[in-house]
Nucleic acid binder design. Structure first.
Lengths: 342, 342
DNA sequence: ATGAAAGCGCTAACAA
DNA sequence: TTGTTAGCGCTTTCAT
């Protein structure tokens, strides 16, 4: 009985009604070549008459699959969809899913617990983004024998990760500012994921900071002479943080995300601060903002490509192909107009 | 046997190993109050030792649910995620899903067939967007006894739909242009969904056009004196269409989507056309573009609210609550700076 | 070409 | 409180 109060029509009904067996009905739908045309037609006709559709749940259960891959969000859906870079990644993921006849299931941390979310996820594989997989989730994926590919996850001996060379990219980013003569620099970092105990050693932010330090060393700048901020990778966070940043009176702001940078820029502009005349800014991601006054100087990383590569990697693992190399995608400095040489 | 070559651990293993029954194990996980603390602890301990996680697929199958709702996309994922308005809707959907412990499954037309996609979707309910449900999909949802709520779907005796008053909104939109003295107007419409035979009578575009006609009537303007274009609701489409539109030498462009409008504006600006001095433009949706030179005059419709309302409606249907009214959300004209009075 | 029947792993009604 | 067992709807092996 379903919601309509009607009895659900099952394969057994079609078998009985058509005079064939359940096997035959199953074949009629999934392996036409294994039964006679006559039988097939008769079966399909009764199926049509009774409006029978094979239940995909039962089918998936029987086949041990779901036809869907899960995208484990670093934050709430609401926040994630605010970040164009994440959207780009999703576009890449989604396109590959589509090509393979798969659905894309968005999995937010359930009750703030990623562990819980993974435990209940009915998907054939997982894509994670933005944080190193904590031991809990990792071993859970192991237990559930679920293929898992990370994006921006960094080094791991257990899972593959699609990355740019974040250390190198961060180095280039800060070097550009230093080379332009900036010394009073404020750095805007990303929120540290709570899920990751060893975050400081291997996480995305740590890698970026290694790059920054390398640049500072090279220009013989004391890393304590810089100012450091932390905020969500959203426009709104940038907007809200701008005033705080300005108190440190930097000549250049370096952010780990374009979304932040655009927020900061808008706030600065609205308080009469001219970019790059009064202050320079360099972002990260190279998201495409349309209708903008000026092009942001930033580090380009290909979100769509990262997504599609991660999905393709996941599909090959699911298909039993041994994939051992962690793919690295290219990055580069985009010379917008927001960095001024002093 | 799973991918690791290990035998999957099932509830039966835990039952045997712990000396209890499958029921007891099931209760230990899902209904602690129905078994003794002692038994429960013993069971959970062996479960932990054997690294047992109840299989969510089997669980869902047995319970007849999926803990996920499906979002049926009007176009490919790639295209949809390019439209900020759709993203807003997803944010609304996603937030409500999250609150209810549900996942959000994105379902693109499979092999270009929505029918096929719905047939295989393992979700508890469906949200559609942007087009009237064609008979095929509608009856399929019926057959699968799957609750379905539309967004922008318009009137239907079979399914609820969350809408603004599109006719009224379109009326306001075009009236604003007419009142400002414009008579040479080009209208940019949305792509007509192929899936919808009766689209012309009840679809979104038809409703908008009714509003346009009403405005034209009121100002005694012949509807044939306007020019009509059709394009995807994306920035890129607008960009590409701009030159074509300019050939009709309008004093005002009225689009059915902001994404189009921003594309058109960028192209016009780049060919030295000044807005609104040389040409006016009014959009639709009121998407938030950050860092923009100017505010677009547009019709505001609350994407997030539409999403969350649709999701909430779907959940109440799923919970057996009879919901009969099709929710209408408010819209209003946003006076940006892109409409000039002649 | 066709069918009987044994799963898939879990839930829950029913019995004890 | 605990266990037996019959489903859930489909796939698929193995006979025929």
């Amino acid at each position: 009985m379903n919601a309509n109060g009607k009895k659900r029509i099952t394969i057994a009904d079609i078998a009985r009604e058509s005079g064939y067996s359940k096997t035959a009905v199953s074949f009629a739908f999934n392996a036409p070549e294994r039964i006679s045309t006559n039988a097939r037609e008769k079966i399909l006709r009764t199926a049509g008459k009774l409006r029978y559709i094979p239940d995909p749940t039962a089918r998936n259960f029987s086949l041990g699959r779901h036809s869907s891959i899960g995208f484990l969000l670093p934050q709430s859906i609401d926040t994630c969809l605010l970040n164009p870079y994440i959207i780009d990644v999703m576009r890449g993921l989604g396109t590959v899913c589509q090509e393979n006849g798969y659905m894309l299931t968005i999995i937010p941390p359930l009750n703030d617990s990623l562990y819980e979310a993974v435990k209940n996820a009915t998907v054939d594989g997982l894509i994670t983004m933005g944080y190193l997989i904590s031991d809990g989730v990792g071993s859970l994926a192991d237990v559930r024998a679920m293929p898992l590919v990370m994006i921006d996850g960094g080094d791991s001996d257990r899972f593959l990760s699609v990355n740019i060379d974040d250390e190198g990219a961060a180095y280039i980013q800060l070097s550009a500012a230093l080379r332009a003569g900036h010394r009073k620099i404020s750095i805007v970092s990303l929120p540290a994921p709570t899920l990751t105990p060893d975050f400081n050693e291997k996480g995305l932010i740590a890698r970026r900071f290694r790059g920054y330090r390398k640049a500072l060393d090279e220009f013989s700048v004391d890393e304590n002479s810089l100012f450091y901020f932390q905020s969500e990778a959203t426009y709104a966070s940038g907007l809200a943080l701008a005033d705080e940043i300005m108190k440190t009176q930097p000549t250049c702001i370096v952010t780990m995300s374009d979304a932040q940078a655009y927020g900061i820029m808008d706030r600065l502009t609205s308080i009469g601060c001219s970019i790059p005349d009064d202050i320079s800014i360099i972002g990260f991601d190279n998201i495409q903002q349309h209708g903008c006054v000026r092009k942001l100087t930033t580090i380009d990383q290909p979100g769509i490509e990262k997504g599609s590569l991660a999905a393709r990697t996941l599909f090959s693992i699911m298909n039993g192909k041994k994939t051992t190399k962690a793919p690295v995608v290219p990055h580069r400095l985009i010379e917008g107009g927001t960095l001024r040489t002093l």
